[in-house]
Amino acid sequence: MTAEPRRPTRQLIQPDLPAFDSAALDPARRAALAELLLTLADDEFVIGFRDSEWTGIAPMLEEDVAFSSLAQDEIGHARLWYEMRSALTGEDPDGLAFGRQPDQYRHARLLDHPRNGWAFTMVRRWLYDTADAVRLAALAGSSFVPLAEVVAKVRREERYHLMHLDAWLARLAEHSGTPRGKVQAALKALAPDALSVFTPLDAEQALIEAGVLEAPMTELAARWLREVNARLAALDLRQLPHTDPPVDGRSREPVHESFAWLWEEFTSVARLEEGAQW
């Protein structure tokens, strides 16, 4: 690749989010939205970096490409959610993404697990993406229009992730012996944290009353469990237990060793030179 100098007079990356009037929202509603948006952003950001760990080392070239694309999609979604939150709070979106301490991230605990092997990665990603699909469906009719618009776009992209991951889950599950055994082991290991995507939000009731979120997280979790357990049963895989989502499923106390490592990785450039642009 030839290194062509960038034109120095303009910033290459501009915010993508269209401007909206955040002052029209009352402070309580703005705070509730900000909390929701941070969970959406951090989930997509962390899963995106998890995906990127496979760039260059996936078991086959096609998956190297696929996981790099998944990463690119998810980081793109995270960028919009950080920008939307910033439009509400006045924070710097880059500061949100790269400038926080590890214990300030609000992603679901499901994403704290290291990537482990290929089967583990597939199971975790399938659990996350199916949960994310249920959550996005509950935000699709949001009264907060900028959110509803981006959700509509995100869902069209996530469809390809779901198809890809579900095909992989089936492919591994239908191979008796090692692949199937690894899927079962991953389901067992991840079951305690599987519902953490639906960790209730502090301001959840306000979001429901405002017409932003369709139903409480516990109800979304129950919907999701019905869906995934039906699919797991069809593949003759172990089911997830019917429980409520954990209340501390986005808590970083203590910070998981694997997330501490990931944070070191994804903030390494930003920490090298504060305020650097690239």
Binding site: L12, Q14, D16, D73, G76, H77, R79, V150, K153, V154
Partner: peptide, 15 residues
């Protein structure tokens, strides 16, 4: 309208 949200081409098209 971006084709895909994470598509870096949209910034180039914009410019």
């Amino acid at each position: 309208l971006p084709t895909f949200i994470g598509c870096p081409a949209i910034d180039v098209m914009r410019h």
